[in-house]
Amino acid sequence: MSEWFETGSGIRVADPASRGLQYGDGLFETIAIRNGKPRLWRYHLERLTQGCERLGLVAPLATLERDLASVLARCELDTAYCIAKIIVSAADTERGYGREMPSQTGVSIGLFPSTPLDQLDYLNGVSTMLCETRLATGSPIAGLKSLNRIEQVLARSECLQAGVFEGFTRDADDRLICGTISNMFIVRDTRVCTPSLARCGVAGTMRQLVINLMDRHGKKVVEVCDMDENDLATADEVFITNSQIGTLPVIRCGDYSWPVGDSTRHVMGLLADFGIEECRL
């Protein structure tokens, strides 16, 4: 059972006239709450700020952290391990697509119960698939976590039907982009690579943390580049990242399979040392 709050007050019914509901005119952040505190808060705030700038929205930075803390203090859920979803949408206007730039915003905060993944997933890895759903390229919201998620809905539904943990999406030119709920990394020889998200996809906060940690403490620096299915076929290791789970080894994608390798374990160790306890084996 989720709990929703709007600027500190509990709400039960969304306004059908809101721009977020009508047009997907807004952004959201899905934040891991651990021991009552938001994890990777700075990373989430940076992405939200960048998204607001690109969409012409006034970022609600002055009160957002305080509002989230108030919601966590008032909610009935166990905040030791749960999920917070912050929705920032353009304020209501007269009917129609157009609005002022920049526009004022409304904020809704939802809390959801959560449970840790099975430790065996971190030890033994998970299976994935290549999704048939393609992502549109050249989008002005590339990299952002906008409210427009229908591509992810369709691709994620493929995963549920196939019974796999995750699915990798591609664009119309067959470039690998990201998972339906994660970002992907491929290890080959001395290289660790993650797909470019300049054209489409979502730039995850855990992805950025891994890039930063590898740059500072890793044995290899992450390369951001265009990738395709051939990179999966020739990979030595594959792993995925997500704000809720940290990092998981990938052992299969369709006909391709990989071991849980040293580079993946190294990344998991870096995250565990940073405080991502799910990755501590």
Rank of each mutant, 00 (worst) to 15 (best):
E3V: 11
W4V: 13
F5D: 00
T7M: 04
T7S: 13
G8E: 15
G8A: 09
R12W: 04
A17L: 15
S18V: 08
G24K: 11
D25C: 08
G26H: 09
G26M: 01
E29C: 00
I31C: 02
A32E: 11
N35S: 13
G36A: 06
R39V: 15
R39K: 14
W41G: 03
T49Q: 02
L57E: 03
L57C: 15
T63S: 10
A69G: 04
C75K: 06
T79V: 13
A80T: 14
Y81M: 02
C82K: 10
S89E: 14
A90L: 04
T93L: 02
E94C: 06
R95L: 08
R95K: 05
Y97R: 10
Y97M: 09
R99I: 06
M101W: 03
P102C: 07
P102Q: 09
S103N: 10
T105C: 04
G106M: 04
G106Q: 12
V107W: 01
S108T: 12
G110H: 06
L111V: 13
L111H: 01
L111K: 00
L117F: 07
D121Q: 04
N124E: 15
G125T: 06
V126T: 12
A136N: 11
G138Y: 09
G138C: 11
P140G: 14
I141C: 12
A142V: 09
G143D: 05
G143F: 14
L144S: 05
S146L: 08
N148S: 03
Q152D: 04
V153T: 05
V153I: 14
L154A: 08
A155I: 01
S157D: 12
E158M: 05
E158S: 07
C159D: 13
C159I: 09
T169Y: 04
R175A: 07
I177P: 02
G179L: 03
I181Y: 11
S182K: 13
M184C: 15
F185G: 07
I186M: 14
C193P: 00
T194K: 10
P195G: 03
L197S: 08
V202E: 07
A203Y: 07
M206L: 10
R207K: 05
V210P: 14
N212Q: 15
G218W: 06
V221P: 02
E223V: 08
E223M: 12
M227W: 15
E229M: 06
N230W: 00
N230E: 00
N230K: 02
D231C: 10
L232C: 10
T234K: 04
N242D: 04
Q244I: 09
I245F: 08
P249A: 05
V250P: 05
I251N: 02
I251L: 00
G254I: 14
G254F: 10
D255E: 03
D255I: 03
D255T: 06
D255K: 10
S257T: 10
S257L: 01
P259S: 11
G261C: 06
T264R: 01
R265Q: 12
H266F: 12
L271W: 05
L271S: 02
D273W: 00
F274P: 09
F274G: 03
I276D: 09
E277R: 13
E277N: 11
E277T: 13
R280M: 08
L281W: 11
